[in-house]
Design a protein around this nucleic acid. Structure first.
Lengths: 340, 340
DNA sequence: TTGAAAGCGCTAACAA
DNA sequence: TTGTTAGCGCTTTCAA
């Protein structure tokens, strides 16, 4: 019923192979035949079956970017940046959520589903080390993440500890003495993002000759702004000594700013706040949010290159690469009161 | 090289057809054979080729959601909502950007690419009527959009004019007399989103017995917060009579809040601001942003049902559906000063 | 209830 | 430079 390559071939008076060669820009095709083929394509309204091409050639020309939740501003910024990078390499990419689509039956992380693509970029947020380790995919896979991943995978991460250290060092230098570690984790066993950033918080304290009060580590189980808002308001009400907040993510920091407002603590005069991610919205907030810039553009550029090369070398053996993007603190209105 | 259905069939001592039946949950398979097949699948680590299945059956089990830019907070909220809806129907969906991937050669909107999917949800933002009209796809397609779309497509839109009218009516009732129409459009010929929302602005004025000053319609060519911020600051500096801003989208309104701050205009006492979209972040802003709620969850629910039914009825003829979601104003801190 | 044959639409490999 | 042959891995159809 649909027009096939054979129909085009018949209309143009050539073999299907020649049509295929024209459509794949194989350079050895005679100019006149090429013209005849393209005319027939046009007249018949032919559209290539990419499914059939993929079955035969093993290539889909498609890459997928998988993250927990597209509505998370960090992931949507990352996905957008990756999409721009892939587009400039002529690679088409789609974006998927692992939320609602876990490894289960028809999920985004199953081998059967992933085989539709030539490569995968996986944001590790929300995935445990074990979940990643159990992935048994046979295609190029780059993990982008805030925390440790199994060493056999290519992995691009940010300087969690150093970035956090910079942020808290800045808060301490700006006069804070009681800095809440919002979204932090007290456990030091695993290598998650929250743990690493909490380690930076501790490190900054000890480098300043201060003792970090572990009671100031406040986990945010769901990592939502609303949850952070409530938690911050509660803690600020009870403990008026808190004079700084370092949040593990800007989404959390934005909630913290709202929570501080709820209990009438003025930022930055009474309370200083620093986040992590350097989202575009930070400059628009009132007060503008100080944040650690994780170097997202650099990371997505690296991810695109790495995946492009892995795909091009078609499964050749390789050492896995592990890159770390340097972090850089950006001070805005929410912190940096200069007096002590 | 990869394990195929035939390998599984051989290992289980059955025909490939039986393996296929087991994997598709065809109920007429003997329990013992089913068990043998599943054991063989497990032992061999077999993974179905969804590509081959699609080539043969014509179904991919996949739907795509296409929007201009995932980094836009409205689209990412919409996509997330749609993904949740599709997941609850057992349909897997991917998300694509039309930005960087236009109709060109290998774009997201080409027929060849779209044929990979069983259905499409297309956000019309950033697409002209003509671009949509030139789409010649043969699969279920639902357009979700703020503006008019060709009548042959199923279309779910929001009550642009009424929502805007409510917003501006509220501003006028709250004492505003010079309400900037930010992101509006002076042309009344086309049926775009900006035009419809500007029409609501005019309507509210005439219903209040006032004359809308067309000089207060300020277009934002790129629809970015930063651009809006600059424009608002410039206009407020020049024209101190402006006492209200209605922005066509919350992203724009957020920029407007920042711009007002840049020129030290206090919201809501000196200037009231209302946006459109009711994004989750609105409640976290300082001041919290009043906004028109377009009923996104309702719209995405409708889109999911409609597409699911279109897919199930496999190309049967149908009247196209056109649904409009009612809009509802949510007043927060940025507007609603009660004195006149 | 299970299996054999055929072919979805394309391209790799080879032959002309 | 073009064409022929074969088959990617599955499911539709029909026979057993």
């Amino acid at each position: 019923m649909a027009v096939t390559m054979r129909d085009v071939a018949n209309a143009a008076g050539v073999s299907p192979m020649t049509v295929s060669n024209v459509l794949r820009d194989v350079p050895t095709v005679d100019e006149e035949l090429r013209a005849r083929v393209l005319r027939a394509v046009d007249e018949l309204g032919y559209e290539l079956s990419l499914t059939a091409r993929q079955l035969r050639s093993g290539r889909s020309g498609l890459v997928t970017v998988i993250g927990l939740d597209i509505n998370d501003p960090y992931f949507s910024a990352l996905a957008s940046s990756l999409a721009a990078g892939f587009a400039s390499e002529g690679i088409h990419c789609v974006i998927e959520q692992s939320r609602f689509n876990p490894g289960g039956e028809r999920g985004a992380l199953t081998g059967a589903h992933l085989k539709r693509f030539d490569g995968v970029v996986l944001s590790s947020v929300g995935l445990s080390y074990e979940q990643m380790d159990s992935l048994d995919v046979n295609l190029p896979l780059v993990i982008m993440g805030e925390h440790e991943a199994p060493p056999r995978f290519d992995h691009i991460m940010m300087a969690n500890i150093d970035g956090s250290r910079q942020a808290v060092e800045h808060l301490l230098a700006s006069g804070c003495r009681r800095v809440m570690m919002l979204g932090g984790s007290e456990t030091t066993t695993t290598h998650g993002m929250a743990e690493a950033r909490t380690a930076g918080w501790r490190q900054a304290h000890s480098e300043a000759g201060l003792v970090a009060d572990e009671a100031l580590v406040i986990p945010t189980p769901h990592y939502t702004p609303t949850e952070a808002r409530t938690l911050v308001a509660e803690h600020l009400r009870v403990d008026r000594s808190i004079d700084g907040i370092f949040a593990v993510a800007d989404a959390i920091a934005i909630g913290a700013l709202a929570g501080a407002r709820d209990v009438h603590r003025e930022v930055p005069t009474e309370l200083q706040v620093v986040g992590f991610d350097n989202l575009a919205i930070d400059t628009l907030l009132n007060p503008a949010l100080s944040s650690v810039d994780p170097g997202m553009d650099w990371m997505s550029q690296m991810a695109v290159r790495l995946l492009r090369d892995r795909i091009a070398s078609h499964g050749a053996e390789h050492e896995s690469e592990h890159l770390v993007s340097p972090a850089r603190l950006v001070v805005r209105e929410s912190s940096g009161r200069s007096e002590a």
